[in-house]
Computed example of a mutant assay.
Amino acid sequence: MKKIGIIALALFIQHISAQNNRFVYQVTMKPDAENKTDIKTENAYLDISGEKSLFYSENRFKRDSTMQKAFQSGGGRGSINREQLEGFRTNISYSIEKDKSSQKILFKDRIGRDIYTYEEDRPLNWKMSSETTKIGEYKVQKATTDFAGRKWTAWFTTDLPYQDGPYKFGGLPGLIIKVEDDKGEYSFDLMKNYKIAEIPALNQFGNTVKVKRADYLKQQEKFKTDPMSFMQNSGGGGFPGPPTARGGGGGGRNQNPADMRKRMEERVKEEVKKNSNPIELQ
């Protein structure tokens, strides 16, 4: 009986570790450098499995699901409710995948009609503090780091068996419950968590282009000055967007190309202005 009990316990632990968990973070952002009173708030998911984790926008997930259902029902793009999609606009256009075995962090973001992906090449060097407190139901410990031009303070808990966290953060002895930069311009706060059947495959739309981080930044700057050069051969629809407008394009099939170019350039300039205070400053 004792042997059977040990086997049952081992199987139970294996079952628990094999489950997929979703952690929902509230992300608070001040993306406009000229208007710090313009505060954006939305939810993002950190889905964790035994092999990897994936961080992405809740609105993107809802938008992808809405589009997927429209195409599966045979209605195609024309059957999609544009107002509904507008409600799913997001400031978190990127997704971040962390591979547990290789310890690699892969960043993916859309520029024009393609997905650009790079492997994060900067390590997170945490300074551990003995300071502890309680956030919600969790006892948490403090750690700090300098990353991408900002000073970050994180609070992690060993109550949850994951060395992970939102965005590119991770590598602490527990799950990050809260992380915020010292200017209070970006913060991630855990709201809730629950089990999920599997980590979803995000719709990619277009080609995936693997680049170095420096090349991604160059392409991003080029898009800001000449967005139409990224939209050639995209069929007139596409997903033209720097940060908040990702997936907000389309609807240009019968328009004059010169008018389309002008509209797109104006929209990109407006988005660039609204996103002049990115999460990464360096």
Rank of each mutant, 00 (worst) to 15 (best):
N254W: 07
E270M: 08
N233S: 13
M264G: 00
T225V: 12
D215M: 13
M231A: 09
E221A: 13
R253I: 12
N256L: 10
V268L: 03
N254I: 06
V272H: 02
G236P: 00
E266C: 08
D215N: 05
E265N: 03
K224E: 04
A245W: 06
S229E: 10
A214E: 14
A214V: 09
N256Y: 08
D226V: 13
Y216I: 06
K274P: 14
V209N: 09
K222T: 11
F239V: 10
G235I: 05
A214L: 12
G252R: 13
K274T: 11
G248L: 15
T244A: 13
L217D: 13
S229N: 14
G249C: 04
Q220G: 03
K224R: 07
G252W: 09
M231H: 03
G238A: 06
K262M: 06
Q219L: 10
K269Y: 00
Q219H: 12
V268N: 03
K274N: 15
G238R: 02
V209K: 09
V211T: 11
F223Y: 04
E266I: 10
P257A: 05
A214D: 11
V272R: 03
A258N: 14
E266Q: 13
E265P: 01
K274S: 15
E270R: 12
D259R: 13
K212I: 02
R261M: 10
G238W: 00
R263A: 15
R263N: 13
V268P: 01
V268H: 02
N254G: 02
K210P: 04
K224I: 07
G248Y: 12
R267L: 15
K212V: 01
M260R: 10
R261L: 10
T244N: 11
G236M: 01
K212C: 00
G247K: 05
N233R: 15
N254C: 04
K224M: 09
R261T: 12
E271Y: 11
K218Q: 09
V209Q: 03
P240F: 06
N256D: 10
K210C: 07
F239R: 11
G250F: 03
P240C: 11
F230G: 00
A245P: 06
G241M: 09
V211A: 06
R213T: 08
M228Y: 01
P242A: 14
G235Y: 00
R263Q: 14
A258L: 14
N233F: 14
P242D: 08
K262R: 10
K218D: 08
D259M: 07
G241I: 10
M264A: 03
M228I: 01
Q220T: 04
E270G: 14
